[in-house]
C-alpha cells in the first residue's frame, strides 16, 4: 500500500499538478467516458461492417450458385462457373494435418517446459518457441518453398513412399510442394499457441496434488498422465480450437507451398489449394464482377469457419477457467 502511495506522490509531484490546473469538471469527464466508449464500440462496428460487406459484395455469386457453391468442384473463370469445394477441402485437409502434428508436439513441449526441464533450459526453450510465433507468415513461406520443399522432395517423401506408398495418401510425384508440406509448416506456425496455452494449463495444476502423486511413488510420466493431463485436458482441447482458428486462415505460408491447383486429390503429395491461398492468388486478377463476387463469397465461408472455431474456443475456455477456479 505504501509503495502505491509513494508512487502516486512521485507522479503528482513529478509534473502532474493535478489539483491546481484543472478544477474537477463533470463535463470533461462525461466527454472522456463517451470518447472511450466510442472507441470500444468501433471494434464492434468494424466486425458488424465486415459481415455486412462480405454478404453484400458476394450477392451476385450467392444468388447465382446458392448453397451449391459449397460442394461444387467447378472453378472456371472463363465460363464463370464457381464452386468452393476444392478450396474448402484443401483448407480442411491442411488444417487437420497441422492439428494432428501440432497437438501432440505442443503438449509434449509444454510438458517438457513445465515438468522436466531445469528452469534455465525451460526459459531458453520457452523463449525460442515464443520467437517462432513472431516469425512472419511470409518468411515461413520463403523458407517453405525454397528450403523445406527441396528437403521434403529429396529426403522425406521418397522415404514415406518406400514404406507407406501402398496408401493412396502418399501416391504421386514427390514434388516437395503440396498438402503435406503445407500441413507441416502450418503445424510449426500454430505450435507456439498450443504450447503456450498447454503450458498455462499445466502450471495451473496445484502442486500439492502433483506432490501427493510423487509421494505415492509415481514416476513423472504417471503423475503427468493421471494427474496433470486429466486436470488440464479440457484446457488443452481449448488450446486446440485456438490453434485450429489460426490454421484455417493462415495465408501466405500456405500460398507458397500448397501448389495452387483447383484439383481435388486424395494424395497428400499432390498440389492443392486453400480458401486463403485462392484469395491471395486470384483476387487482383478477378476482373469480372461474378469472379470477384465468388472470391468474396469464399472469404465469407472462411470468415464463418474461423468465427465458429473462435467462438467454440472462447466459450469452452471460459467454462474451463470457471470450473477450474471453483474446483481449486
Amino acid at each position: 500500500m505504501s509503495t502505491a502511495l509513494d508512487k502516486l506522490v512521485a507522479v503528482v509531484r513529478g509534473g502532474g499538478k493535478v489539483s491546481e490546473t484543472t478544477p474537477p469538471t463533470g463535463r470533461a469527464d462525461v466527454a472522456f467516458r463517451w470518447l472511450t466508449a466510442a472507441c470500444a464500440l468501433l471494434v464492434i462496428l468494424i466486425m458488424a461492417g465486415m459481415v455486412v460487406e462480405l454478404f453484400y459484395n458476394s450477392r451476385l455469386s450467392l444468388k447465382e450458385f446458392g448453397f451449391g457453391f459449397l460442394w461444387s468442384t467447378d472453378w472456371n473463370p472463363v465460363l464463370q462457373k464457381f464452386g468452393a469445394a476444392s478450396s474448402i477441402y484443401g483448407t480442411l485437409v491442411s488444417t487437420i494435418l497441422a492439428m494432428v502434428i501440432a497437438m501432440p508436439l505442443g503438449v509434449l513441449t509444454a510438458l517438457f517446459l513445465v515438468e522436466l526441464a531445469p528452469p534455465g533450459i525451460s526459459k531458453v526453450v520457452g523463449a525460442g518457441v515464443e520467437l517462432l510465433a513472431a516469425v512472419p507468415s511470409i518468411i515461413f513461406g520463403m523458407w517453405g518453398l525454397f528450403v523445406f520443399a527441396p528437403f521434403m522432395a529429396d529426403h522425406v517423401q521418397p522415404f514415406l513412399q518406400q514404406w507407406l506408398g501402398f496408401l493412396p495418401l502418399f501416391r504421386g510425384a514427390p514434388l516437395g510442394i503440396g498438402m503435406l508440406p503445407a500441413g507441416i509448416i502450418l503445424a510449426l506456425m500454430i505450435l507456439p499457441f498450443i504450447t503456450a496455452v498447454s503450458r498455462d494449463v499445466f502450471a495451473m495444476v496445484p502442486s500439492v496434488v502433483k506432490e501427493s502423486g510423487y509421494g505415492m511413488g509415481s514416476t513423472t510420466w504417471e503423475v503427468t498422465r493421471k494427474v496433470t493431463l486429466r486436470h488440464g485436458i479440457r484446457g488443452i482441447i481449448g488450446a486446440g480450437f485456438l490453434g485450429l482458428g489460426r490454421a484455417i486462415g493462415e495465408t501466405m505460408a500456405i500460398t507458397f507451398v500448397i501448389g495452387n491447383s483447383h484439383q481435388l486429390s486424395a494424395s497428400l503429395f499432390e498440389p492443392g489449394n486453400s480458401i486463403a491461398s485462392t484469395l491471395a492468388n486470384e483476387f487482383t486478377e478477378a476482373s469480372e464482377p461474378m469472379y470477384l463476387s465468388a472470391l468474396i463469397e469464399l472469404g465469407l465461408v472462411l470468415f464463418f469457419m474461423t468465427v465458429i472455431a473462435q467462438m467454440i474456443a472462447h466459450f469452452w475456455l471460459n467454462r474451463v477457467r470457471r470450473q477450474m477456479g471453483d474446483g481449486l
Partner: peptide, 28 residues
C-alpha cells in the same frame, strides 16, 4: 453489456484471418 460485447468481439477480430480484413478494406 458494451464492454462484454467488445471483449468478445475483440477476441474474434484477433482470430479473424488477416486476408479477410484485406477483403473487407478492399470492399469499403
Amino acid at each position: 453489456r458494451l464492454a462484454t460485447a467488445t471483449r468478445f468481439t475483440s477476441n474474434v477480430l484477433m482470430g479473424t484471418p488477416s486476408i479477410i480484413i484485406g477483403v473487407f478494406v478492399y470492399t469499403i
